[in-house]
Simulated assay, not measured.
Amino acid sequence: MTEKEARDKEQFERMKRNILALDLSLSDAPFHGLNHDHISGIKFAIEKVLKDTGITFESLIEERDKKDWFKP
């Protein structure tokens, strides 16, 4: 694997973790001043990013559990 491929793979993994973290944090969003329209817009954007990738929130949660994402 070349250095660029390794960087791309790491960036892709980081993107998946960030998307999952963003989705999970939306449950607290109303307590931080976001209204329903904001939350709907964010969810729409996430779905647009994941469209046609085969990646689902369920698959991200499974990957999180396998790879111990977000564990101290």
Rank of each mutant, 00 (worst) to 15 (best):
L50F: 05
N35C: 11
K48T: 11
H36D: 15
H36Y: 15
H36Q: 15
R64V: 01
D52A: 11
F44G: 11
N35V: 10
E62F: 09
D52F: 08
K51A: 13
H32T: 13
D37S: 15
R64W: 05
G54E: 04
D52H: 09
E63L: 09
G54L: 06
G54N: 00
E47Y: 05
T53M: 02
T53N: 01
K43A: 09
I46F: 03
I55P: 01
G54V: 00
L50M: 06
H32Y: 15
D52G: 12
I46H: 04
E63I: 06
I42C: 09
H32C: 13
G41T: 12
R64Y: 08
K48P: 03
D52E: 13
R64S: 04
L60H: 03
H32L: 15
H36M: 14
N35P: 13
I39E: 03
F57I: 01
G33P: 08
R64E: 04
V49I: 15
G41W: 05
I61P: 06
H38F: 07
E47M: 12
K43I: 07
S40N: 13
A45D: 11
S59K: 06
I46C: 06
I46K: 05
H32V: 14
G41V: 09
K48I: 13
K43T: 05
E47I: 09
G54D: 00
G54F: 05
G54Y: 06
I61T: 12
V49R: 03
E63K: 07
I39M: 07
L50V: 03
R64A: 05
E58K: 11
D37Y: 14
L34Y: 08
S40Y: 12
S59T: 07
I46P: 07
E62N: 10
K51E: 05
I61V: 14
V49T: 04
E62I: 00
G33T: 06
L50K: 02
L34F: 07
I42L: 10
T56Y: 01
I42T: 07
F57Q: 00
D37L: 14
N35Y: 11
S40A: 15
G54A: 07
K43E: 11
K48R: 15
D37Q: 15
S59I: 06
H32Q: 10
L60I: 06
H32N: 10
H38G: 14
H38D: 15
E62C: 09
S40L: 13
H38L: 08
I39T: 09
D52V: 07
L34W: 02
H38I: 08
G41F: 08
L50P: 02
K51W: 10
A45M: 11
E47G: 08
E63S: 10
I46G: 03
K51L: 10
I42W: 00
A45Q: 11
A45K: 10
T53C: 00
I46D: 03
H32F: 13
F44P: 02
E63A: 04
K51H: 12
I42Q: 04
V49W: 07
T53S: 00
E58W: 10
L34T: 00
